[in-house]
Simulated assay, not measured.
Amino acid sequence: MKLGVFMVLFGGRKLEDALDYVASKGLKAVEIGTGGNPGKAHCNPADLLNNDTELKNFKKAVESRGLTISALSCHGNPLHPQKHLAKADHDDFVNSVLLAEKLEVPVVNTFSGCPGDHEDAKYPNWPVAPWPNDFQEVLKWQWEEKVIPYWTEQAKFAKDHHIKIGLELHGGFSVHTPATLLRLREAAGETIGANLDPSHMWWQGIDPVQAVHILGRAGAIHHFHAKDTVIDPINVSRYGLTDMQSYENMLDRAWQFRSVGYGHDIKTWADIISALRLVGYDYVVSIEHEDGLMSIEEGFSKAVQNLQQVLIEEPLGDMWWV
C-alpha cells in the first residue's frame, strides 16, 4: 500500500508548493480534485484536455517529486433534480474520466448523487425509513428511473476509457452503505466500486472492518480514504446519528470528523489496514482532513504519523513457516 493525501486540503497553495510539502512528509501519492465539491484549485480538466503542453507540465510536476496520482475526484450530485446543477456535476465527471485516461490514473471518485422524489422536484430527497410507505415508493422510483439508468450508462462510458468509478459511501446520497453500493454494482457492472471512507461508516453505525470485508470479498473497493469520526455518547442520545446540526456546532453535535487516531485508536486503524490487505486491496490510503479541532497542517501531520505506524507497504512474501 501507499500513503497519499486528498490535495483539496492544500487548495490554498499553488500546486507545486503543495506537492513539495506532501513529498517532504514522505507520502507517495496524491488524489486531485477535478470538480464538484472538491473544486478545481489544482486541476481544471477542461483546460488540460485542450492543451497538451499544460497536460505534460501537470504530469511532470507530480512525477518529478516521486509521486503518483491515485485518483481524480469530482464529488457532486449528477442526479440533482435541478437540471443545470446535475449537468455541471455530470460534465465534471465526464471530463475527469477523459483526463484520467490521458494521465493513466485508474480511478475517478465521486458521489452517486441523490434524485428528487418525482420528475419535477427541485431538491434531492434521501429516504431513510421504510414507513410510511411513501418513502418506499420514492426509493423505488429513484433507483429504477434515475440511479440505475444513469450509472449504468456512466459505467459503460468509464469502462470504454479504462477507468474505474469509486463512489464514496456518504449519507445524503443514494449509495451510502455497502449494501447500496453492491446493489448498484450488480445492476451497472464491476466498473462501479467504492471509494471507502471509514468516517462515514462509523457515523452510520457500520463497522468499517466489516465494510472492508463485505466490499473486499466482492472486489468492490477501488480507492480508500483515511478519516476518523468520534461519536459523543451523550449528544447522540439527544440528537441521534442523523444529527442535522451544523458541523461548526462541535460542542453539541452527536458526532464529528477527526484526524486519524483522534476518533479511534491505532489498534482499530491497524485492524482496518489489515482487513484491506486480507481482501487484496494493495492500493493507496488517501488522507482526508475535516477535523474542526486541528489546523490543516497539524491534522494532516498527525494522520501521517499515525498511519505510518500501521500501514503495510511491502509486498507479501512466501509463508516461510508453512
Results as ranks from 00 to 15, higher is better:
Asp265Glu: 12
Val175Cys: 04
Lys164Ser: 05
Ile148Asp: 06
Glu290Ala: 10
Lys164Tyr: 08
Val260Gln: 02
Trp255Lys: 00
Asn37Ser: 14
Arg277Gln: 12
Asp291Ser: 03
Tyr262Thr: 03
Lys60Cys: 05
Lys164Val: 03
Lys87Arg: 13
Ile214Thr: 12
Thr34Trp: 02
Gln309Arg: 15
Val310His: 07
Tyr247Met: 12
Gly39Thr: 14
Gly66Gln: 10
Lys159Thr: 14
Asp17Met: 01
Thr268Cys: 02
Trp141His: 11
Val175Trp: 03
Glu16Thr: 12
Gln309Met: 12
Trp269Phe: 11
Leu98Thr: 09
Arg185Val: 02
Leu72Gln: 10
Ala100Asn: 01
Pro233Tyr: 00
Val5Phe: 06
Glu168Thr: 00
Val322Pro: 00
Ser112Arg: 10
Arg238Tyr: 02
Glu137Val: 14
Ala303Trp: 06
Ala211Asn: 03
Gly299Pro: 09
Ala121Glu: 04
Asp318Gln: 13
Gln210His: 13
His176Ser: 05
Gly193Arg: 03
Phe257Asp: 00
Gly172Arg: 00
Lys302Ala: 12
Ser96Arg: 09
Ile32Gln: 03
Val30Leu: 07
Val5Thr: 15
Leu85Lys: 13
Cys114Gln: 07
Trp126Gln: 08
Ala155Phe: 10
Glu186Tyr: 01
Trp126Asn: 08
Leu67Asn: 11
Tyr21Phe: 15
Lys56Arg: 15
Trp321Ile: 13
Asp291Cys: 06
Lys164Asp: 12
Leu241Thr: 00
Pro130Lys: 03
Gly172Cys: 05
His213Tyr: 08
Ser96His: 10
Glu101Asn: 14
Leu182Met: 02
Leu79Val: 08
Ser259Glu: 08
Ile272Val: 14
Lys25Gly: 00
Gly4Gln: 07
Asp160Arg: 11
Asn77Cys: 14
Asp243Arg: 01
Asn50Asp: 15
Trp320Val: 07
Val62Tyr: 06
Ala100Met: 02
Ser112Ile: 11
Thr68His: 09
Gly4Thr: 06
Lys164Arg: 15
Ser73Glu: 12
Gly299His: 10
Ala46Phe: 04
Leu181Pro: 01
Val138Ser: 08
Asp265Val: 05
Phe157Gln: 04
Ala23Val: 04
Leu55Glu: 06
Arg183Glu: 02
Phe58Arg: 03
Ala218Lys: 08
Gln142Phe: 04
Leu184Tyr: 00
Ile231Cys: 01
His200Asn: 07
His161Ile: 13
Leu19Phe: 01
Ile312Phe: 11
Ala155Ser: 15
Pro149Cys: 07
Val284Tyr: 02
Ala211His: 01
Ile312Pro: 10
Gly36Ile: 05
Ile163Val: 15
Val147Trp: 02
Ser259Leu: 11
Ser199Gln: 06
His176Gly: 01
Lys159Gln: 15
Leu241Tyr: 03
Glu104Tyr: 13
Val147Glu: 02
Leu167Pro: 07
